[in-house]
């Protein structure tokens, strides 16, 4: 299976691990990730105002590029995934935004949300299959108790993202089982880490991320995995629980597949 791939800015820089291990693992799994040429930053946050079209154009360009190649668009970073999926949904369902964006882009064929946006985890679940993944694991992480941290952007709003049950997700837990480890269910796995507030209001970010980590630890986690660079930062820098390492899920995937 060949995907168009949208890495996003952070994965080219601070979160290069997330990207690197994803690519390595994809190779083992028979997935080809073709990076879109000249992609532009998605903006990091989805513009919520009803009359904001311009900030969505970068995402539309990526979506159109994938459409032209006839491929699904693969994402890794939670934020990129969130923005691309929601913009795509707007293009499909919001006539006002679709018309404006198409007028601006001057495409030969107008874009109306045809591209399917897929997160790497969704790809593992729906295309590779967790059972298949399990079969390909060479270094199962036996007995490791891993807490999945979803954060907000992957899950909500569930009606648009359709990622998993927003209040009781299981995709990452199933992933953890597939790589041979033991998932830890804890109540704060879908609560906010503090997000971009880490810049302005560090105290808030500290409060939020430590709630998450402490809850994970209380429930017996030995490490935490995430799909989001910002969550990673908050948990690591602001989480305040030093003996609980945080990994990108792709790193453990690569480790299990023996390509780390």
């Amino acid at each position: 299976m060949v995907y168009s791939y949208f890495p996003g800015c952070t994965l080219k820089n601070k979160a290069s691990d997330l990207d690197l291990y994803a690519r390595k693992s994809a190779e083992v799994l028979g997935i080809t990730m073709e990076e879109i040429e000249e992609w532009q930053c998605c903006g990091g946050v989805y513009p919520l105002g009803a009359n904001e079209t311009a900030p969505k154009l970068a995402s539309v360009r990526a979506l159109v590029a994938a459409k032209e190649k006839g491929q699904d668009l693969l994402t890794l970073c939670s934020a990129c995934h969130h923005v691309l999926k929601r913009v795509n949904n707007d293009m499909a369902e919001n006539e006002n935004i679709r018309t404006k964006a198409n007028n601006y882009m001057q495409l030969e064929v107008p874009y109306a949300g045809e591209t399917k946006v897929v997160h790497y985890l969704e790809m593992l679940r729906d295309v590779v299959g967790f059972d298949q993944l399990k079969a390909k694991v060479v270094n199962p992480l036996k007995g490791t108790k891993i807490a999945a941290y979803y954060g907000c952007l992957l899950l909500r709003p569930s009606k648009v993202l359709g990622f998993d049950n927003p209040e009781n997700p299981k995709i990452m837990e199933d992933f953890i089982k597939a790589i041979g480890a033991e998932p830890v269910i804890y109540p704060y796995r879908n609560e906010c880490c503090g997000g971009y507030m880490a810049m302005e209001n560090k105290e808030l970010a500290k409060k939020k991320s430590s709630t998450v980590l402490q809850s994970a630890k209380e429930n017996g986690a030995e490490c935490v995995i995430t799909a989001c660079p910002l969550c990673m930062y908050n948990l690591k820098v602001n989480g305040g629980v030093d003996d609980l390492p945080v990994y990108y899920f792709t790193e453990l995937l690569a480790q299990a597949l023996g390509v780390k």
């Binding site: 049950n165 927003p166 209040e167 009781n168 269910i185 109540p187």
Partner: peptide, 11 residues
């Protein structure tokens, strides 16, 4: 109550 897991009914 599948749609109301914020109340932890299933947990």
């Amino acid at each position: 109550l599948d749609n109301f897991d914020e109340f932890a009914y299933s947990q």
